[in-house]
Simulated scan of single mutants.
Amino acid sequence: MTSTAEPNYWSLLGLEPDSDADALKRAFRREARRWHPDLNANDRQAEERFKLVNEAYAVLSDPKRRRAWEGRSIDPPSHVDPFASGFPGFEDYLEVVLGLGRRRANDEDDEARQTVTDSPVDSQHFSGDWPATAPPPPPPPVHAAETLETDVLLTPDQALCGTAVEIELRDGTLVEVLTPPQAGDGWRLRLAGVTPGGGDHFLHLRVQTEEGLRIDGLRVHYRLELLPADAALGCAVDVPTLSGPVTLQVPPGSSSGRLLRLRGRGLESDDRRGDQLVEIVVVIPAELTEAERALYRRLQELALETELD
């Protein structure tokens, strides 16, 4: 066995004592799939649990060994580990244990194969080599590499000059990453091959102020939300900058997506100073009064009349 304390095989397979053969096979298939090492690459305990599941089925499916186990006089197991040379692929493993392989055309070959495959993979007698009539186990499956992403918050000064960021990987390893100078909000830094399966870990840089200013190199971005009337007629509005609020004159007829420039309101480096770009976003109130609805209907009528003219 795989441990010094003898396990309860029925409990190990999630069965009540004296369950029939069909229930035993179903439980074995379920637990074998659950604990097969190929399907649990990141679980160090899966291998031992898989061996116990195999051992439980080997004992409970053999009437003689089952009677001996129930009387707690089962013969001591051999020291040979049937999985010493590795674990077979899950589907091929089930073919050997449960006899699920394809039928052969020749009845004699089929009968001989059935004699072999109806016996469980016994932890005491299985030598680790597959029967000559069974196909060789396939190569281990290729596990998809996992890609992870972590948000990293930076101040405008940290983004401008670059800073050291400490990241803890899933296995507990601490990695120090230096962000590049003049980094921007939304940038992604790649740590190649550090995740389980050899995938990448990306650092997603977030460089924003409480006022909603987004930093990108020396440039600053700001989204200015306006009501339709203000965008259509033009207005003066205060907008935040890194050095304090300033009054911006919005021209009449400004649509969503229009960019207005505040020169010299960005970050400064080596006698260079960036600008601040203000993006106009026209928003419609979620709830309108009856008077507002009437005005919008009138505007709609005027638009239709203009199209007809």
Rank of each mutant, 00 (worst) to 15 (best):
L52V: 09
V53Y: 02
N54W: 05
N54M: 13
E55W: 13
E55S: 10
A56C: 05
A56D: 08
A58N: 03
V59D: 01
V59P: 02
V59G: 04
L60C: 07
L60D: 11
S61Q: 02
D62H: 06
D62S: 08
P63I: 03
R65E: 11
R66D: 05
R66V: 05
R67A: 15
A68T: 11
W69R: 05
W69S: 10
E70A: 12
G71F: 13
S73H: 12
I74H: 08
I74Q: 12
D75G: 10
P76N: 06
P76K: 09
P76Q: 11
P77N: 05
P77Q: 06
P77M: 10
S78M: 14
S78F: 14
H79Q: 09
V80T: 13
D81K: 03
A84T: 12
A84S: 15
S85Y: 10
G86V: 08
F87N: 04
P88N: 07
G89F: 00
G89H: 09
G89T: 14
E91C: 03
D92K: 04
D92H: 11
Y93Q: 14
Y93L: 11
E95I: 00
V96K: 09
V96H: 09
V97C: 04
V97Q: 07
L100R: 07
L100K: 02
L100P: 06
G101S: 13
G101Y: 08
R103A: 01
R104I: 03
A105W: 06
A105I: 09
D107C: 02
D109P: 03
D109K: 07
D110T: 08
E111C: 04
A112P: 01
R113Q: 07
Q114H: 03
T115G: 10
T115N: 05
V116D: 04
T117S: 04
D118T: 00
S119W: 01
S119K: 07
P120W: 00
P120Q: 00
V121L: 12
V121S: 07
D122E: 03
S123D: 06
F126P: 01
P131H: 07
P135R: 01
P135L: 04
P139T: 12
P139L: 06
P140W: 01
P140D: 03
P141G: 07
V142W: 12
V142M: 03
H143W: 13
A145Q: 11
E146I: 15
T147L: 15
T147M: 14
L148H: 14
T150E: 15
D151V: 13
D151C: 12
L154R: 05
Q158P: 03
Q158W: 06
A159G: 15
A159L: 11
L160P: 01
L160N: 04
C161F: 15
V165M: 10
E166G: 10
E166L: 13
I167Q: 14
E168H: 02
E168P: 01
L169V: 05
L169T: 05
D171S: 07
L174H: 04
L174G: 01
E176G: 13
V177E: 04
L178Q: 15
L178T: 15
T179E: 11
P180K: 06
P181D: 02
P181L: 06
Q182C: 08
A183D: 08
A183G: 10
G184I: 01
G184P: 02
D185N: 15
G186F: 09
W187K: 13
L189Q: 06
L191W: 10
